[in-house]
C-alpha cells in the first residue's frame, strides 16, 4: 500500500485530523472494511483513526458500579493481603471467582459490549438499533462469556510472557500462573468485552495508539504496576511480602485500579 508510507513519515508535520482523514480514505475501500468487525457500526468512522474511548454507560446502576467496584476490589485485596503473603496459591485461587464476578458485573453494567454501538450517549440512537443502553440482554451475556473464554485462552500466553520477563520457570508454576490469571482477568477481560477480536482495535491497543479510557487505562496501569512490582524483590529487607508473586500481584492491582480510575476520568480520551 503506497499510501501508508507518507502517513507514517509525516506524522509530526500534518495535524492529526489530516492523518485521520488520509487514513480513513485509505480504509474506506470496501474490501478491507468487510473483513473487520469494527467497534462502531457507522460506516465512515469505522477505521482505527477514530477508535473512540469507551464511555461508561450513563445509567445510575452503571455509575454506581463504576465507583463501587474499584473500592470493593481494593477492600478485597487489603482484606486478603495477610493471607496472600502467608499462603499465596490458595488465596489467589479462591479470589479468582470473586474477582471474575466483579469484572463480569462491571462489564455487563458499565461497558458497551463488542458489536454494540460504542458511544450512544454522544449520538442519537439510529433507527435500526434494537436495544437501549443499560439493558443486559442475552447478546451482552454471550459477549461476556466469550470474553471470559478469550481471557482464559490468553492466560497461558500471559504466563509465558511473565516467565520471559523473569518469573521463575522451574518453580512457583502455580504462583505465576494464578498471578497471570488475575492480571488477565483485570486488564484483558474488559478489553475483550468491548473490542471482541477486532484486530484493528487490538493493533491500536498494542501500538499504544488507543485513546485512554477505563479499559485501556486499566491495561496500561496493570501491566506497568506488575512490572514495577518486581522492583522491591531484590531488596534485603527479608520481609515475607517480598516473596514471589506478592509484589507483582500488588503492583498489578494497584496499577490496574489507578489506571482504570485515571483513564476513566482525568485522562479520558487522551492518547500517548
Amino acid at each position: 500500500m503506497p499510501l501508508v508510507d507518507p502517513v507514517t513519515m509525516s506524522s509530526s508535520a500534518i495535524v492529526k485530523g489530516a492523518v485521520a482523514q488520509s487514513t480513513s480514505t485509505t480504509k474506506s475501500t470496501p474490501g478491507s472494511q468487510a473483513t473487520e468487525s469494527s467497534t462502531t457500526t457507522a460506516g465512515s468512522s469505522s477505521s482505527l483513526a477514530t477508535l473512540r474511548p469507551v464511555q461508561i454507560k450513563q445509567t445510575p446502576a452503571a455509575q454506581t458500579v463504576r465507583h463501587a467496584l474499584p473500592a470493593a476490589l481494593t477492600a478485597l485485596y487489603l482484606l486478603r493481603f495477610d493471607a496472600l503473603v502467608t499462603n499465596p496459591v490458595p488465596v489467589m485461587l479462591n479470589a479468582l471467582p470473586v474477582v471474575a464476578a466483579f469484572q463480569m458485573t462491571y462489564a455487563l453494567l458499565c461497558l458497551p459490549a463488542a458489536g454494540e454501538p460504542a458511544s450512544k450517549s454522544n449520538r442519537k440512537p439510529r433507527p435500526g438499533e434494537k436495544k437501549k443502553g443499560g439493558d443486559i440482554g442475552s447478546s451482552t451475556i454471550i459477549t461476556a462469556l466469550l470474553a471470559s473464554v478469550l481471557t482464559s485462552i490468553v492466560t497461558p500466553f500471559l504466563y509465558f510472557a511473565m516467565v520471559l520477563f523473569g518469573a521463575p520457570f522451574l518453580t512457583h508454576g502455580s504462583h505465576t500462573f494464578l498471578c497471570a490469571a488475575h492480571l488477565a482477568l483485570l486488564t484483558l477481560f474488559p478489553l475483550f468485552y468491548v473490542h471482541g477480536v477486532d484486530s484493528a482495535a487490538w493493533a491500536a491497543v498494542g501500538g499504544f495508539r488507543a485513546p485512554l479510557d477505563e479499559t485501556f487505562g486499566g491495561l496500561v496501569g496493570g501491566i506497568v504496576g506488575a512490572w514495577l512490582g518486581a522492583v522491591p524483590i531484590p531488596l534485603d529487607w527479608d520481609r515475607e511480602w517480598q516473596r514471589w508473586p506478592v509484589t507483582i500481584l500488588c503492583g498489578a492491582y494497584g496499577g490496574y485500579l489507578l489506571g482504570r480510575v485515571l483513564g476513566g476520568t482525568l485522562f479520558w480520551g487522551k492518547k500517548f
Binding site: F165, A203, R209
Partner: peptide
C-alpha cells in the same frame, strides 16, 4: 527484556488495521 520487548513490538505502530 523491557527494551527488547519494546523493540520487537514497536512494529505495532506501523500496523494500522491488522493485528501484527
Amino acid at each position: 527484556s523491557t527494551w527488547f520487548g519494546y523493540l520487537t513490538l514497536r512494529g505495532f505502530k506501523r500496523a494500522n488495521t491488522t493485528f501484527p
